[in-house]
Structure formats: C-alpha cells, structure tokens
C-alpha cells in the first residue's frame, strides 16, 4: 500500500499522519508539496489536518485551489483513494470532492477533546476492519467542524449509506447536522472526517482505538 501525504503551508498534523501510516502500512508515505502538479504513483492520498493558509477566506478554501489539487481531483474521479482529516475534510469539501460544508462550531468554541464515534458504514477502505455500528474513541481539535448540507444532500448521504462516522449521541462537539463526523463520496473512494484517528494509534496516545481504521487500508 503506497501512500502520499499532501502538505500545504499551515498544515501541522502531517507528522502524526506520516507516523500512523508508516506504523500500519509498513511503508514510509511520500510527502507532496502543494505546488507540485502531479501526484506520485500511490494507492492512497491523505489530506492531513492543520490550518492551511491560516484559515484565510474560509477554512481550506485557498488550499483547495492549489496546483496539486487539480491532479487529486482528476485521479479521485478515477478511483484514487483520498482520506481527508479535519482541515483536509474542509479542503476537499471546498474543492467539491465531497458535498456540504464545514462551518463555525455551533457553540463558537474551538473544541479539543475526545469524542465517541460510531462506524455507520464498515464497507469503506478506512472502516472494513470495524464491525458495523461499533464505537471508537477519537480526538477532535477544530473550530469549524459543524457539518452542514441542504436537506436533499443530507437525505442522499443518509439513504446511500454515505455517513461513515457519526458522533455518538450526546458527544457531538460542534453542532454538525445528524451528528455527522465523516462522510464519503458516491464511489466510496473519498472519505472526509473531522476527528483525528491518527492521534489514537499509539500506546502513548492513551488508547489505540483507531488502529483498525488504518489496518483497514491494507485490506482495501
């Protein structure tokens, strides 16, 4: 399983993601700078978390229009797996790879804590090692993770099983519609989520709940 991690100015979760990927896939991911126009030959591209361009204009808006994203978009449409975490989720929604938008947390506070996530679809490249409906602990750290979409989009996401992760009732940290924490595209090769599974895979993280998510990458 060959992977690449995209790097934009202001991204700060790339190292954590590189460690999690190397630990689970046994291969060092390539790091791809945003000004590159072509992705290397990989099976998975990760758009990591952070604060690309200091969240200027809208979170992820500028990064979504950077040179490398044109190739990410083109290859994603052909089936390349894309995993977008936190600011990465904001970037891919801004790019139009996933529907909806992530707006200011309903309570206006930056949230940095552990939440409980329920796996709502275990038929994806990032959840196939999890039981349907199983619950994992996972940290969140964001100020704009409030997922919104129009009613029609929400209905489609729910009806087509494209809600991949949902905050367990009572742990929704940002007011996201339908407690949505992560979704996928129609072809299920693009997954975006606000929580940081890469920060729950080491003994030092306190828990390793999210290891099976990364192990799913090997089976996919």
């Amino acid at each position: 399983m060959k992977s690449a991690v995209l790097l934009f100015p202001g991204i700060n979760r790339d190292s954590d993601m590189l460690m999690a990927l190397e630990k689970t896939t046994g291969k060092k991911p390539q790091v791809v700078w945003h000004t590159n126009t072509t992705l290397p030959d990989v099976d998975l591209v990760v758009v990591p978390g952070g604060f690309s361009y200091g969240d200027y204009l809208r979170c992820g808006a500028i990064a979504a229009r950077s040179p490398i994203m044109a190739d990410v978009m083109a290859k994603a449409l052909k089936g390349l797996k894309v995993l977008a975490i936190c600011n990465g989720f904001q970037i891919v929604t801004e790019a139009g790879l996933l529907p909806g938008a992530l707006v200011r947390n309903a309570q206006m506070k930056f949230v940095c804590r552990e939440v409980r996530l329920r796996v709502e679809n275990n038929q994806t490249f990032f959840t196939n090692k999890m039981a349907q409906g199983s619950v994992v602990s996972c940290p969140v750290a964001h100020g704009e993770g409030n997922y919104i979409a129009d009613n029609e989009t929400l209905k489609r996401l729910e009806g087509e099983g494209r809600v991949v992760f949902r905050y367990v009732e009572g742990t929704n940290p940002n007011g996201a519609m339908n407690d949505i924490a992560g979704i996928c595209n129609e072809a299920r090769n693009v997954i975006g989520m606000m929580p940081h599974p890469e920060n729950m895979v080491e003994a030092l993280h306190g828990k390793q709940d999210c290891l099976p998510l990364f192990e799913s990458l090997l089976a996919a």
Binding site: V103, R104, A106, Q107, M108, N146, I148
Partner: peptide
Amino acid sequence: GVLDPQGKA
C-alpha cells in the same frame, strides 16, 4: 437558514 454563530455573538 445557515447558522451564524458569529452574528449571534
């Protein structure tokens, strides 16, 4: 219809 927490504040 889009929630505006900043406006609310």
